[in-house]
Design a protein around this nucleic acid. Structure first.
Lengths: 340, 340
DNA sequence: TTGAAAGCGCTAACAT
DNA sequence: ATGTTAGCGCTTTCAA
């Protein structure tokens, strides 16, 4: 491959001159600049980022580290964040990683390698310890999650998220207010120290607040957020085991969609025979039949806040802060008042 | 940050010794090995990938370069490919990039920087020229697209894809065989040298083969694959402008889902008043109401073939080859025979 | 089994 | 305006 030395030789100038052209430094004669740029094209020169990052001490790059490939809720958020970061004159690098690896470790490595000035974590754990977080030595923001199950000091981390417990409670209360008492929950897990557990707690809180006894047989754990087949089967099992519930609270839109199909296949119409409420507010859920009644996360504002927070942290060494956003009920066709 | 020199000093050994430990070289005494590994933990050492890649001449890394963040069809394919590549003992690096950048340029850069041994392109253009492809100097495979609109020699590239034109033709013929003659098409674009244009051609071929005149007023271009709102509006426009069609061929599942909602909101029931067929075979489409009748891409086999092809290219300098897969009609609830 | 040293491609002083 | 050179962190000969 062509390197900067080849370019220099080809043009009969010094390596540093080529470097200056490549980095838009002002003090290069127009003549040399053009000569070098022509060589770049002719020799198909492509700069080596590794070498660049090795010698550089800083960059203008913020990384957005996404854990979990196929979360449809993330797609929109990523777009918003990318737009805003770019608009503010920074470079955003998108990195995806498997759910099996530790995001803090990857972040630490990336921060070093690519001389990052900030990291936005998307889809991380809710239970960091101070020691773990200490690995990250650049400003960072947890996007769509917070440290509920960890023991970080509020002054030591920034986060942008909804109040999952509160949202779940609100969703379930929406059903209660329509007269429902036998309300099932469709969740990923009920004790994983994560978003599912929080929303599960909110579900229990709502029941509790309204004097409805918690019934374990109305809890259906799918073990997945994305495998619709598994969600469908879990819901089917629930239906076959308990015929008394009149409503389902699904902790995510996709789960609700699979559940509605399972209900339909078991002869239960939504919302006539069963009401369904979820949390997320995917665009997709506005286009299903029936449309889904769901608590919408304010993606636009959240993405903007993520971007602004990291930039504030970088530019002004702003204080760490936890932002909590309110979800908004998007009325759909999946709920109805329970007949007396 | 801690580097290899710090480790060496801390342990009282040479840098090269530390490097040997870090890279699992055999000729290191057990004592030194442990001493170094302890230091790695104590000092929170994280190797610098940039430095590593700079000095290395090769790696065991294959990159999967994905263009376009939110294509739900890709999610499954990525999983399959990742599993197989890892299983074969290679490392897969997943890279996402915006649709606005050129995948070949990014690929060339990455190949250099990360010392890649192969690249899998996902979501690229259909019209590469030999000069463009020459940028890539490692084995590569085009996944889910081929060079229909370009001028590469068959011996110069490998691809794994369905026959888009053929699939579209089959989809439309399925409708024709059910008695439909007024068949609308919902597509992204009809002349973008890409998948949409191919499927559009297949649509026209089918009409042609069955003596049905092509009617431009039945063509609805959304300009997007993913913005369901736009797809909904485009479909609504179509419905309001032409009340004669009895079926819609949507070139992608998500489009069909938004279209079904638009039809429903205009008082047209699917499949009673309008049949809908699509291409993709998303898992989601099995869980909508009605379920979508769609041509399923054999994702599992395609992913496996992508992985096997790149590995064969790498290991055995295998010949370039274009693999074409057949789609399979997944019967759903969105079509019916047209009443006489 | 270990150490010394060259050099990967590049940027950024420092000279001129 | 341009050239010379040190060195980023690491791997890999080559010597010992």
């Amino acid at each position: 491959m062509t390197n900067i030395k080849d370019l220099a030789q080809h043009c009969g100038v010094a390596i540093s001159t080529v470097s200056r052209v490549l980095n838009d430094h002002p003090d290069v004669s127009e003549e040399t600049r053009e000569k070098v740029l022509r060589a770049v094209r002719e020799l198909h020169y492509i700069p080596n980022t590794s070498a660049r990052n090795l010698v550089r001490t800083t960059s203008d790059t913020i990384a957005l580290l996404v854990k979990g490939v196929n979360n449809p809720f993330f797609a929109k958020l990523i777009k918003v964040i990318e737009r805003e970061i770019t608009k503010q004159g920074y470079t955003l690098e998108l990195h995806h990683m498997d759910t099996s690896v530790d995001e803090l470790h990857v972040g630490a490595q990336l921060a070093n390698d690519r001389k990052l000035i900030g990291i936005l974590f998307l889809g991380g754990r809710f239970n960091y310890s101070p020691e773990e977080l200490a690995l990250i030595n650049v400003p960072s923001v947890f996007c769509t999650y917070t440290n509920t199950f960890g023991n970080l000091n509020d002054s030591d981390y920034s986060s942008v998220a909804i109040d999952d417990k509160q949202a779940a409670r609100f969703a379930v209360e929406t059903l209660v207010n329509l007269g429902h008492r036998r309300i099932a929950i469709l969740t990923d897990n009920d004790d994983d120290n994560s978003i599912s557990e929080l929303r599960f707690q909110g579900y229990k809180d709502a029941l509790n607040a309204h004097g409805i006894a918690f019934d374990p047989s109305l809890v259906a754990c799918t073990g997945t957020f994305s495998d619709m087949g598994a969600i469908y089967r879990t819901t089917s099992d629930l239906i076959e085991r308990d015929n008394s519930f009149t409503a389902i609270f699904a902790i995510a839109d996709l789960m609700a969609i699979a559940a509605i199909k399972a209900l339909s296949d078991h002869g239960k119409r939504v919302p006539d025979d069963c009401s369904v409420v979820a949390i997320d507010g995917l665009e997709l859920s506005e286009y299903t039949l029936p449309t889904l009644t769901t608590l919408v996360q304010p993606v636009e504002e959240m993405g903007l806040t993520c971007a602004k927070t990291i930039i504030d942290l970088i530019e002004s060494h702003g204080e760490n802060k936890q932002y909590t956003f309110e979800t908004v009920l998007r009325p759909g066709g999946s709920i109805r008042r329970l007949d007396k």
